[in-house]
């Protein structure tokens, strides 16, 4: 089996997902080649052929040009799988490739089992074992699912590509995340509120517990989207990635985007009414309780 790995590069940096791509190829025991639309100054540690197109020429975000570069390399390499990270870059490009190639697309692979691909369903409450019916398929990998146990090494054999600028989408620059005085990454204790708090007023009991534990309060995406907490408090893929000594997840079911932002915490306590909630997968302790009852009592006892 042969796979083509599409590395992700953004704003002057090669993203760490490139090592997950090559680790995935190893998991499959597959021969691989990699394609990077980036710069020579930031090459991945990778033993093999690396097709390199210059990001200045191809465009920082230009799906039409990136798609064409990938299709050209596919024509040369004839892979059975084209693999991208399941990120804002990968999930944008993958369907464009799948339609151009008449290929099946498999999104957010979390595991390979007996040669078959496993993907999540229903907020990670279920897993789907799937089978592409096409000769070539396009696959995206869940962030963190194929992190190699060791830092990869090696240096690639570079083959340069020329990009022809075109396309109907214009990229007008980046907007950096808002600066704030809350830096969750430095907090030793984080107590986070999820959808389970039910209403904005209940954020107070989360804040009170955070204070009693000498930490900061955080929030999951639904709480921030509902504007009950500021974006700077958001833990997860599109917010902050944290690893405090203690993380208390209150009423957070455990969507993968949230887990990716906090699963490296030293100790995780989850408070949830559903003992089957996916947060239980990463929690050291899952207290099955209504946070509105348990959290105030916990705060009171800690403050006594």
């Amino acid at each position: 089996m042969k796979v083509l790995l599409i590395a992700e590069y953004r704003d002057g940096k090669l993203l760490a997902s490139s090592s997950e791509l090559s680790n995935f190829a190893q998991t499959l025991n597959a021969e691989s080649a990699m394609l990077l639309i980036g710069t020579e100054a930031a090459l991945p540690a990778y033993d093999g052929t690396l097709y390199l197109a210059d990001i200045a020429q191809a465009g920082e975000f230009n799906p039409s040009v990136h798609k064409q570069l990938i299709l050209d390399v596919i024509a040369k390499e004839q892979p059975q799988l084209v693999v991208l990270p399941h990120s804002s870059y990968g999930w944008d490009l993958a369907p464009r490739l799948a339609i151009a190639l008449n290929a099946a697309q498999v999104s957010e692979v979390v595991e390979v089992k007996e040669g078959e691909l496993i993907i999540p369903a229903c907020n990670s409450k279920l897993r789907r074992r799937v089978k592409p019916e096409t000769e070539i398929s396009v696959v995206t990998l869940q962030a963190g699912a194929f992190t190699p146990s060791e830092e990869p090494s090696g240096s690639p054999t570079v083959i340069k590509l020329e990009a022809t600028p075109n396309g109907d989408i214009q990229f007008n620059g980046y907007e950096a995340a808002e600066e704030t005085d809350v830096d969750l990454s430095k907090a030793e204790v984080i107590v986070s509120a999820g959808r389970g708090i039910g209403k904005p007023e209940n954020l107070e009991i989360i804040e009170a517990l955070a204070k009693a534990l000498g930490g900061e309060y955080g929030a999951s995406r639904p709480v921030v989207d509902a504007e009950w907490a500021e974006h700077s408090r958001q833990v997860g893929t599109t917010g902050q990635t944290v690893s405090p000594k203690l993380y208390v997840a209150c009423g957070i079911s455990g969507a993968i985007q949230h887990l990716a932002g906090m699963k490296k915490s030293e100790f995780i306590l989850a408070i949830n009414t559903d003992k089957d909630a996916p947060i239980g997968e990463v929690a050291d302790v899952l207290a099955v309780a209504d946070l509105k009852q348990l959290v105030p009592i916990l705060t009171e006892k800690l403050s006594a």
């Binding site: 999540p120 089978k131 899952l286 099955v288 009592i297």
Partner: peptide
Amino acid sequence: EARLKTLSMAPPEKKGGGLILEGEPAELA
């Protein structure tokens, strides 16, 4: 015709996971 077939669906395997505690709030605390 679908290009991707679902062979099976199942809940994720529990990877050991942590301790599950149930009970009265005060006792749990």
